[in-house]
Amino acid sequence: MTLFLLIFVVSMVVIGGTITMMMLSRTPRYRTEPQHLLRLFDRVLSGEASANEWHTVVGYPVRHDEYLESVRRSAMLIMDEHGRLSQAAAGGSLLSRAGREELTMLRDHLAAHMALKAGQREF
């Protein structure tokens, strides 16, 4: 009988501890930052990014920054208009030449915006 009680108490402590930890922990959240988009854009322009990587970063809505959300939506439009997913699967580029030019302009605009915000923080 004592063995049963010992096993029961240990089981309840383990189960209770697990439930307590699960209730106190938060759900992990992914927060897209400008650096993530710049890194992805650079990888796409150099032909190193996969379609999965593109959809993982660009397919996730940005709720904390309206400007980044507009950049993300512009990138989605570029992919919709100029995307070449079938060629990318065979080792080609994700975007056509016109798409890469548009993405370069979007990337430069985002980099300039980041530099401007960094310059404003210094003052």
Rank of each mutant, 00 (worst) to 15 (best):
S11M: 09
M12Y: 12
V13W: 01
V14A: 08
I15C: 04
G16P: 00
G16Q: 01
G17L: 02
G17V: 02
G17S: 01
T18A: 14
T18V: 14
T18E: 13
I19E: 06
I19R: 05
T20M: 08
M21Q: 09
M21S: 12
L24S: 11
L24V: 14
S25T: 15
R26Q: 13
R26N: 09
T27L: 14
P28V: 06
R29S: 05
R29V: 08
Y30H: 05
Y30K: 02
P34Y: 15
Q35R: 07
L37F: 07
L37I: 11
L37D: 03
L38M: 07
R39P: 01
L40A: 04
L40Y: 04
D42Q: 15
R43I: 12
R43K: 15
R43M: 14
L45V: 00
L45S: 00
L45E: 00
G47H: 03
E48W: 07
E48A: 09
S50C: 08
S50D: 09
E53K: 09
E53P: 04
E53F: 12
E53H: 13
E53D: 13
H55L: 14
T56H: 15
T56E: 15
V57D: 03
V57F: 06
V58H: 05
V58W: 06
G59H: 09
P61A: 03
P61F: 03
V62H: 02
V62Q: 01
R63I: 08
R63H: 09
E66I: 10
Y67D: 10
L68C: 06
E69I: 12
S70D: 12
V71K: 07
A75K: 10
L77Y: 09
L77G: 07
I78A: 08
D80A: 15
D80C: 13
E81W: 09
E81H: 11
E81L: 14
H82P: 06
H82S: 09
G83Q: 05
R84A: 02
R84N: 02
R84K: 05
S86V: 01
S86I: 00
Q87E: 12
A88T: 00
A88P: 00
A88G: 00
A88N: 00
A89G: 00
A90Q: 06
G92S: 00
G92L: 00
L94A: 01
S96L: 05
R97N: 08
R97G: 08
A98F: 04
R100L: 03
R100D: 04
E101V: 13
E102V: 06
T104G: 04
M105A: 14
L106T: 04
L106M: 07
D108R: 15
H109V: 14
L110C: 08
L110G: 06
L110F: 08
A111M: 10
A111C: 07
A112N: 11
A115N: 14
A115S: 15
A118N: 07
